[in-house]
Amino acid sequence: MDSIDLEVLKTCDLWLTGGQQVALVTVIKTWGSSPRPVGATLAICEDGRVVGSVSGGCIEDDLIDRVKREGINLGRPELLTYGITADEAHRFGLPCGGTIQLAIEPLSEKSRIPELLQRLSKHELVARRLALDSGLVSLLPAAPEDNLNLSEQALTSIHGPRWRLLIIGAGQLSRFLASIALAMDYLVTVCDPREEYRDGWQVEGVQVLHAMPDDLVLEMRLDSRSAVLALTHDPKLDDLALMEALKSPAFYVGAIGSRLNNAKRRERLKEFDLTEDQLARLHGPVGMYIGSKTPAEIAISILAQLTAVKNHVPLAAALSIAQAKSVLAS
């Protein structure tokens, strides 16, 4: 499952290859409340078809109508602002008088979309610099902390995964987790030294490695944009990897298991050289309580919790699996 950004770029390439006129629309600035974040993209074809989103739908409708009436005849990139007045904000569905500024870029061979896609297929993080006066594009290496930047001369957008997720254990649950995480723009790695689990496990875009998990955790040099999920239920595989992950700057470390198994795991981890603060970083039983039963529902529960932690959103204790089940059992 591709991320929205990747789906938009692939669609641009497909339409261009088919000889159609295409424009790439990018959110470059917002004021007040806005439905889509800076960097969100939309591809629009000369016949009005769109992929992606820059708003809740009203701005898309206006862009489609504009293309159908006028075509895509821009000589160079254009900046367009919606929602300056209260009436416009209401018309375009921008809440609380929000305002959104877009860059509309007519695409051609000089847009370098195929080359960008090729680099993204190698999991590179790429800065795409668009010269506003000529439409010429240059592709440069980017860092995870880089953000979209607009100057008088150029628009630089960032493409590729900025976050990493290591999943320990190749199984059915990890398939759902990996697929959804890919759509969330994570670079996903699955590690499992057990051949019987690893054989036949495949999700397009995910690297599957035969390695001891703790060795891989050290090799990956986890940073503050990294997350680790241990799913094997096997202490020989999970515990050492969790120990190394908890000592790293990873923003999220979680392990699946029952409340009883989680308590036993914490007791085992206390025997390692972990501080109380490091041990407290472990999410387990992993996920938010939503009554999940199936692997797909459990994956949603886990990624919801992971996303809240990534976005620095505090979660009520009642949403933790341990707390919720304790209340239900009483």
Rank of each mutant, 00 (worst) to 15 (best):
Q101N: 07
G97N: 12
S121N: 13
S34H: 05
E88D: 14
E88F: 01
V126I: 15
I84T: 14
I64M: 14
S108C: 14
I113Y: 00
L24V: 06
E124A: 04
T30W: 13
L16W: 06
S53H: 09
S111I: 08
A40N: 05
R49P: 01
A89M: 11
I72W: 01
G52S: 08
I72S: 04
L125D: 06
G57F: 12
G39P: 14
I100E: 15
I104D: 13
C96H: 14
K110H: 15
L116G: 02
V38Y: 00
F92I: 09
R66C: 12
L63G: 09
V67R: 03
I104L: 15
L42Q: 02
L63M: 11
V50C: 05
D87H: 08
I72C: 03
G98L: 10
G71C: 09
Q118N: 07
V67S: 03
G71M: 06
L14V: 02
E60T: 03
T30E: 07
G75F: 00
E105I: 11
Q21P: 00
T81H: 05
R36W: 02
W31Q: 15
V50L: 10
R49D: 08
P77H: 01
Q118L: 11
D62E: 14
L94W: 08
E109H: 11
P37G: 06
S33M: 07
V27Q: 09
R76L: 12
V8C: 09
E46C: 12
R36V: 05
T81I: 14
D47V: 12
R91N: 02
L74H: 10
P35A: 12
I100M: 15
I84G: 00
G48N: 05
P37V: 04
A103M: 11
W15E: 02
G52I: 06
I104N: 12
G97K: 07
K122I: 08
G83N: 03
P35Y: 04
I44W: 15
E124C: 05
Q20T: 01
V51D: 04
V27N: 08
E60M: 04
P77W: 00
Y82E: 10
L16D: 02
E7L: 06
I113E: 00
E115F: 01
D87S: 12
P77T: 00
P114A: 09
L79M: 15
S108T: 13
S53D: 09
C45Q: 07
I113V: 15
K68I: 13
A23C: 11
K10Y: 03
R76I: 11
D61H: 07
T30H: 07
Q21C: 04
R69T: 14
G98D: 11
Q118R: 06
G18W: 03
A89S: 15
G71E: 10
R36A: 08
I113M: 07
T30P: 02
E70W: 13
T85W: 15
I64H: 07
G83P: 10
L42E: 01
G56K: 07
E70P: 01
K122T: 08
G32P: 11
V25N: 12
T26N: 05
C12S: 08
G56S: 13
L6I: 10
E46N: 06
Q118S: 09
E60L: 03
R91E: 13
G97E: 06
R36C: 12
D13I: 00
Q101I: 08
K122N: 07
I113C: 02
L117Q: 03
A23P: 01
A23W: 01
E46K: 00
G57E: 04
